[in-house]
């Protein structure tokens, strides 16, 4: 089945390599036997080095998509391809490799770290699990902190000892540690103050440029998508209702829901 919306606005000669390809994904949750479609034939892709925005209101299914991609929950049907390879049937060693290839940054950074372990330990964990020696992991962790523009001393702090913005930087360093092909940011800036949000956005943009990172940015803020993303997919009640270049979509929304999102922006 062809995807519901055609992609528009791709300039000729632009890199077309697809890092992530989501095809016809479906997922239904049941609450008191009442079905709720979190993903209804969802298809989209993220290309190498690009930032794709996935927007929609709470409960529209955007986080469910992230959880399916990262193998936290299984879908009912469809496929998720990473660099052209099906990932949904990966098990064991192969699946663990997938966990390295796709990393996440969450909404509340403090909650995403173990409160009883230092930030540095959290950042090193994936490296240590891969069998990197303690010494090497430490050196790499310091590099990662520097990449996220944090002083080395933050390695010894606990999550509750740092501010939200600093903790989110540490979370980004942690996401970078295993050298992922794709980072999914699930509302990564929405709990932060505007000035801090601006700094985190700047950091993500810098990393994207320098490291050639591919990003899937899940949020409900169209202005943020307009700033960061080369393409946007608008989700409503489990379906992708519109896809395109942010400026285009914002100026000429085709769907009523997209229009509503644009009108609601303050």
């Amino acid at each position: 089945m062809a995807p519901r919306c055609a992609f528009v606005g791709i300039k000729k000669g632009e890199a077309m390599e697809k890092v992530l390809e989501v095809k016809n994904l479906t997922k239904t949750f049941y609450k008191n036997k009442i079905p709720l479609k979190a993903a209804d034939d969802v298809s989209f892709d993220v290309r190498a080095g690009e930032c794709l925005g996935l927007v929609g209101e709470s409960g529209c299914g955007k986080s469910a998509i992230a959880r399916i991609i990262t193998h936290l929950i299984p879908p009912d049907g469809g496929s998720v391809l990473l660099n052209g390879r099906e990932t949904l049937d990966l098990r064991g060693k192969e699946e663990r490799k997938l966990y390295r290839d796709i990393q996440m940054v969450f909404q509340t950074p403090q909650d995403s770290f173990d409160p009883r372990r230092r930030l540095g330990d959290g950042i090193m964990e994936s490296l240590r699990n891969q069998g990197v020696s303690k010494k090497q992991a430490r050196a790499r962790m310091r590099e990662l902190l520097a990449m996220a523009e944090l002083d080395a001393e933050f390695a010894d702090r606990y999550p509750h000892e740092v501010s939200g913005g600093q903790c989110q930087r540490a979370a980004i360093a942690r996401a970078l540690a295993p050298g992922p092909k794709l980072i999914i940011c699930d509302e990564a800036t929405s709990a932060l103050d505007v000035t801090v949000q601006a700094q985190i956005v700047e950091l993500l943009e810098k990393l994207q440029k320098e490291q050639g990172l591919s990003l899937l940015l899940i949020c409900h803020d169209l202005a943020l998508v307009q700033k960061m993303c080369s393409r946007v997919a608008v989700m409503y009640q489990g379906r992708i209702v519109e896809q395109g270049v942010p400026d285009e979509v914002i100026r000429h929304p085709k769907e009523a829901y997209t229009q509503m999102l644009v009108d609601a922006a303050l």
């Binding site: 000035t195 914002i250 100026r251």
Partner: peptide
């Protein structure tokens, strides 16, 4: 100025 500059605004035009 910093606070206002940091706030993202939707460009509609």
């Amino acid at each position: 100025k910093r606070l206002i500059g940091a706030a993202l605004r939707l460009r509609r035009d």
